[in-house]
């Protein structure tokens, strides 16, 4: 958790243009290693596009580097191999494969051809640990498509765990989850962030207050504000954008920020 910015996610003047429309319009973001950064903003603010750009899904100009290595211009699977993992708004798991198979595939990018051509003869230790961490050991042999929505999200997070990603980009990980599931996901985030840098796109303010370390607010493709939860909440620019949805409006008092 040093302040050495070279090792974290460093985004400079990032710009993504779709048919003349700048979805991300010159954004600078600096996420130090070990941070749990939440990115919030209204629909269309460019949050997901930002993650798409960092992971190579859309073309972007400017710069985005992690651990000192430039990411823009590389292919998606090369970026993934540099230790950058992501999840998606709609949980994307391999529905016909079992939980175990899903995790085993995620753990396997380094395998040679001979290993690939053989059957899996047991449960690799990393996979067993991850299954334990995401609480799906009991559903190991269930097809992922049969899992409840929240569990699919956990499975995706588990896939990032075994993939050994150093930077996790989670796109609305608690969308559609029950309160208990959110709680468990939050704890999982804490576990993840011990050795990793985590960036979360989230709409859920309550979840954010509890689990964010730092927050970046985006609006119309630009960075609006950045800081701790309290700082961002106090920022008049943020209040203006969320007019009528003042930061203190939700049912819970704002005093329960996570560490």
């Amino acid at each position: 958790m040093s302040g050495e910015s070279g090792a974290g996610l460093l985004i400079r003047d990032l710009r993504v243009v779709f048919d003349g429309f700048a979805a991300v319009d010159g954004v600078d973001i600096d996420v130090p290693p070990g941070d749990v950064r939440f990115i919030i903003g209204p629909n269309g603010a460019g949050k997901t596009t930002l993650v798409d750009a960092v992971t190579g899904l859309v073309k972007a100009t400017g710069s985005a580097s992690f651990g000192g290595r430039e990411l823009l211009g590389r292919k998606v699977h090369h970026i993934a191999r540099l230790g950058i993992g992501r999840t998606f708004q709609t949980a994307t798991v391999f529905e016909e494969l079992t939980v175990l198979q899903n995790l085993d595939i995620a753990a396997g990018t380094g395998r040679g051809p001979l290993t690939m051509l053989r059957r899996r003869s047991g449960v690799p230790p990393v996979v067993a640990e991850a299954m334990e961490a995401i609480g799906l050991t009991g559903e190991r042999d269930k097809p992922a498509g049969a899992l409840a929505h929240g569990r699919k999200q956990w499975l995706e997070i588990g896939m990032l765990l075994v993939q050994d990603a150093r930077l996790l980009l989670l796109d609305e990980p608690v969308a559609g989850m029950s309160q208990d599931e959110r709680e468990a996901t939050g704890e999982l985030l804490g576990l993840l962030s011990r050795e990793r840098t985590v960036v979360v796109i989230e709409h859920d303010m309550d979840f954010l207050r509890r689990f964010a370390r730092t927050v970046t607010v985006m609006h119309a493709g630009r960075k609006l504000s950045e800081g701790t939860v309290a700082e961002v909440q106090a920022d008049p620019k943020v209040q203006e954008v969320y007019l009528g949805h003042a930061p203190t409006a939700p049912d819970r008092p704002g005093g329960r920020e996570g560490t």
């Binding site: 699977h77 798991v93 391999f94 016909e96 085993d104 595939i105 051509l117 899996r120």
Partner: peptide, 20 residues
Amino acid sequence: RYGELLVATRDAEERVRFLG
């Protein structure tokens, strides 16, 4: 394992890409 990966690629090619 290749066969499992092949099915995964069939069903969610992009996801496989994001795994590296």
